[in-house]
């Protein structure tokens, strides 16, 4: 088996990681075309990365940790609690307290961007940036829907719109307004559409209403006992089309 050229190993890797400029990448490609060792090393790199990205678990922050840190940042945090003791002993009680006085908690935890639209957009952007678009990657709604069982206190409807040009790509747990919500991920050409949904307090249906923040479009509507938010960087007409198709599908 041929070995890669010793002096090109890190170049091969930098190319693999998208860190080479176009000129050096082209030079390297010319070399790899005639060097069996370097070609094999490049394939190995791709194979390892593919497996890691597909199989390594992403450990998301537990809800109680998120709640504890959010609470920490509240300006009213009277005398700061002892740090190390706080975590496992006091937090369950603290979280329970927050739940019991949810309305109070909302008042004492004013957060910038607490507006739902901004939270939805924030979740959308994080899902793109953190390389964590899915918890379950599948275009099969019969795979995505059951994945949510036991992870949410409601059963989100999952629909595939592949035939209409909006293929389902997967699903993810996310958090909006401090509650766990379902995020369904769809793709339109190279754009990602996140559809967030969670049970609504109001049973009154509402038609889609659009808003735009920083160039991203959001459409929200209520249907059945759920509230829906679709967000993407596709143009508004396409997002409206997506929402129309989604609502029409079963």
């Amino acid at each position: 088996m041929s070995e890669p050229c010793e002096d090109r190993i890190l170049l091969l890797q930098a190319d693999h990681d998208g860190e080479l400029d176009a000129g050096r990448a082209a030079e390297l490609a010319t070399h790899v075309a005639t060097c069996l060792g370097c070609a094999a090393a490049r394939r190995d790199l791709a194979a390892v990365s593919t497996r890691l990205r597909r199989e390594l678990p992403y450990h998301r922050a537990p809800d109680r940790l998120r709640a504890a840190i959010t609470a920490q940042m509240a300006p009213v945090a009277a005398p700061p609690p002892p740090r190390r003791a706080l975590l496992r002993r006091q937090i369950p009680a603290f979280v329970a307290g927050m739940a019991a006085a949810a309305s109070v908690a909302l008042v004492v935890l004013p957060r910038r961007g607490s507006d739902v639209a901004e939270q939805v957009l924030g979740s959308h952007l994080r899902s793109l940036q953190a390389a964590h678009l899915f918890d379950v990657a599948s275009s099969d709604r019969h795979t995505v829907k059951p994945w949510f069982d036991g992870r949410l206190d409601f059963a989100p409807p999952v629909r595939d719109l592949a035939a209409q040009g909006f293929p389902l790509e997967g699903g993810r747990l996310d958090h909006i307004e401090g509650r766990a919500v379902a995020a369904l991920v769809y793709r339109r050409a190279r754009h990602v559409i996140n559809l967030f949904l969670w049970p609504s307090h109001s049973l009154r249906p509402s038609e889609p209403a659009a808003s735009t923040i920083s160039g991203y479009h959001l459409l929200r509507w209520r249907e059945g006992d759920m509230v829906f938010w679709a967000v993407s960087d596709v143009n508004l007409a396409e997002l409206e089309e997506f929402v129309r198709l989604w609502r029409a599908a079963t």
Partner: peptide
């Protein structure tokens, strides 16, 4: 605060 709360998953991971 957003930089912290928005990156909590990355931090925990």
């Amino acid at each position: 605060e957003q930089a912290i709360t928005g990156n909590l998953d990355a931090a925990f991971n």
